[in-house]
């Protein structure tokens, strides 16, 4: 009997702690969500009260926010840059890593260590010079920035592919060579399919980083092309009166794609993030 009571008590303790914590984790998003439907003056005067007939403003905040920042084009740029950069990074970095693994020699080792080294360098170290170089080379547009992302993403990506490619047994490649496979068809038919699991991880880590990145795109293309984080910051840091209603609407619009992506690919995301942490 006492064991059962003890067990029940423990259960109650467990659920009250965990539910309290979960509520604390969800609350900020819920509060932002219902505030996005309130008139802007009511958001500052009573931020925690739910909208009522007096304070409810329909989708006015959304209209203002989208109009002032061009949110839909920002979404388009974010989407375009993220998808293209991730595709380029996964393809080219896996090729590079395999090449570096197989092409033994001091040069290969040196290049590999340069990639590894770049992982520990904070962005602030190169932000000014990089944005000037990008400007001089005409990379300050949504297509050019993909090259910048390839350069910045290559450190972690080559490192992760390299660790995986090292474990591919040579015999497989020798057999393929005998069958008349050249390096390029070997890569696409034999190597890349074997790198698939790590490619998913690399894709997810880079997608999360590039989608949320603010400072790099702001410095390189921010004047002409706004991605979502730039649009949010523009609304706040921009000129004119502060429109907190429009801000709430933009926050909601920014979180929605992330939540959808998370719920759709939760398993891969969690796996990828853990693998990235353990390696990095």
């Amino acid at each position: 009997m006492t064991v059962r009571i003890k067990k029940a008590m423990l259960n109650i303790l467990f659920y009250s702690v965990v539910i309290f914590a979960a509520a604390a984790f969800i609350a900020p998003i819920i509060i932002v969500f219902y505030n996005s439907f309130k008139g802007r003056l009511y958001i500052t005067s009573s931020p925690f009260s739910l909208p009522d007939t007096e304070t409810f403003s329909g989708i006015q905040n959304y209209i203002n926010g989208v109009r002032r920042t061009g949110f839909f084009s920002a979404f388009g740029y974010s989407f375009f840059i993220t998808v293209l950069s991730v595709a380029v990074i996964v393809l080219l970095c896996s090729m590079t890593a395999w090449y570096l693994v197989r092409q033994r020699g001091k040069l290969s080792k040196g290049i590999y260590y340069a990639f590894v080294f770049s992982m520990i360098v904070p962005f602030q170290m190169v932000m000014f010079t990089m944005s000037k170089v990008a400007n001089i080379l005409g990379l300050d547009n949504p297509l050019g920035i993909v090259i910048i992302y390839l350069g910045f993403g290559s450190g972690l990506s080559v490192f992760m592919f390299y660790g995986f490619a090292k474990s591919i047994p040579m015999e497989i490649e020798e057999a393929a060579t005998i069958d008349g496979c050249g390096p390029i068809s070997m890569f696409f038919k034999v190597i890349f399919p074997m790198l698939r699991p790590i490619a998913t991880t690399v894709a997810i880590l880079n997608a999360m980083w590039i989608w949320n990145d603010y400072l790099l795109p702001y410095l390189v293309i921010g004047n002409n092309y706004r991605t979502i984080p730039i649009a949010v910051q523009y609304l706040e840091g921009g000129y004119g009166s502060r429109d907190i209603g429009a801000l709430m609407a933009l926050l909601v619009l920014s979180v929605i794609p992330i939540v959808i992506f998370y719920l759709a690919a939760q398993k891969q995301i969690v796996k990828g993030v853990v693998a990235g942490a353990v390696k990095g």
Binding site: T96, Y99, V126, V133, I147, Y149
Partner: peptide, 15 residues
């Protein structure tokens, strides 16, 4: 094919 594209991007944006 395999190394140069990544290496160029790496040089331009990092090295």
């Amino acid at each position: 094919v395999f190394l140069l594209p990544t290496l160029l991007a790496f040089a331009v944006s990092f090295v």
